[in-house]
Design a protein around this nucleic acid. Structure first.
Lengths: 236, 236
DNA sequence: ATTATCTATAGATCTATAGATAATGC
DNA sequence: ATTATCTATAGATCTATAGATAATGC
């Protein structure tokens, strides 16, 4: 909620090392994306100004316009950069799992692959990935943010859905989708590391503790999916 | 993501009816809160200007400052107005449930009370409540937004946690908190009505269809909680 | 020569305040 | 008399562009 405050401008690490222009371009671009990612993850699209980003990188504001058409283009670039990485990783893991289980996937197995693969990435990928998780979690709960997910994440998600349907042949398709809806809500909330659980549990749990989430989430959700079997239309 | 666009200024419904000043004040305040709620729910705190709100209400911008100290005060007022209502309703429902079950709550029972009470409110409470749901869902995935929940929602949530602990005496307390973490993530995501599920499922499910969520969520999550029994430390 | 970065600045908002006016209340 | 609302405006950003300068590349 606090607006991004203009921090002391970090002097750029002007490497005098022999950098080719392509390298320099790539480095600067990455620095801009990293800084923007961090700031957007805390304050959202409108809570960050291009000046904030430039100041954080240590360059002039106008350079933002040299690399990006406008602010929203920068925002999208932040989104896309890692979306492609996680998406590809998960897709590969699901394909491998499908091969390994030879047409006999289980609910828990598919969910473990889908979730744990990403939890590992967000846990071990460094600060950038953690920022991206918080960044994405905000998007997932807004109409226009969620729309950005479609293009990059639908294919993997539908792949997961396919496995779940195979594992739950008697469960109506709607239920599978609703189950996924629950999963993604919990998953995104976990990536937000909002800090609320820390206070609520009086320090017993920390919302940023992704390994603890990973240890519980897939099986928890699997049990939810399995409860769909047969027991539909139980009115309360 | 699109910034709130300045819409054609709606002419105020200047009731010539005998309004007392207190009534007039209350009406204007409510109109301001309603408009702000809608706009904030779509664009977030920084995506909305006081001018946007004033224009929507049909009054001059400076009136915003007459009623509210600054923009953030307005934002908080939007949050608090309905937080108190839902919180009190849920608390009452949980107390009643506790009485009815005389110290023998069930996981599914407690979750049904906790979730369904609110789903009914958000379903039948009119447009204002739906906007508020979207508004709150954005907050829940940001550190500073989530902090706003503590004061108003901790008491009810801890009451639910108490019931769950009673229903699951052998489950470690951490697991109960993590389970709640999953529940609230899914719940908030549902209130966001992000539209993503609609496209993902190719129209089979609609993310704004709260009755369908209500019909599934409590039992789904209850199964998840029950899977904690005994089976902890199953390493994958 | 081309590309990366900076200087300078225009134009558009946005927030917030001071002070005027219009409407209700005793 | 008090309260609700408006007019006018200052001051602070913010975005975006034009044009200069500095550094690499052939």
């Amino acid at each position: 909620m606090t607006r991004a405050k203009a921090k002391l401008p970090r002097k750029r690490t002007v490497k005098k090392s022999p950098r080719t222009k392509a390298e320099q371009r790539a480095e600067t671009l990455e620095q801009i994306l990293d800084s923007a990612e961090l700031l957007f993850s805390k304050h959202g699209l409108y809570g960050v100004t291009l000046r904030d980003v430039a100041l954080k990188v240590g360059v002039h504001t106008s350079l933002m316009h040299y690399y990006f058409e406008d602010k929203f283009a920068l925002f999208k670039a932040v989104f896309v950069r890692r979306a492609e990485v996680t998406s590809a990783r998960r897709m590969k893991a699901l394909e491998q799992y499908e091969k390994d289980t030879g047409g006999k996937p289980t609910v828990a197995g598919a969910l473990h692959v889908f979730l744990d693969t990403d939890f590992d990435l967000y846990t071990n990928g460094g600060e950038g990935w953690r920022n991206y998780g918080a960044f994405g979690s905000q998007l997932s709960n807004t109409p226009e943010g969620a729309a950005m997910f479609d293009q990059h994440f639908d294919p993997v998600v539908l792949r997961l859905i396919g496995l779940l349907r195979k594992a739950l042949p008697d469960v109506p398709e709607e239920d599978i989708f609703w189950g996924y809806h629950f999963v993604t809500g919990s998953f995104m909330h976990s990536l937000s590391r909002s800090g609320r659980l820390d206070r609520l549990s009086n320090g017993l749990c920390r919302s940023g503790d992704l390994p603890s989430v990973k240890a519980r989430m897939a099986d928890f959700m699997a049990a939810g999916f399995l409860s769909f079997v047969g027991s539909r239309k139980k009115s309360r």
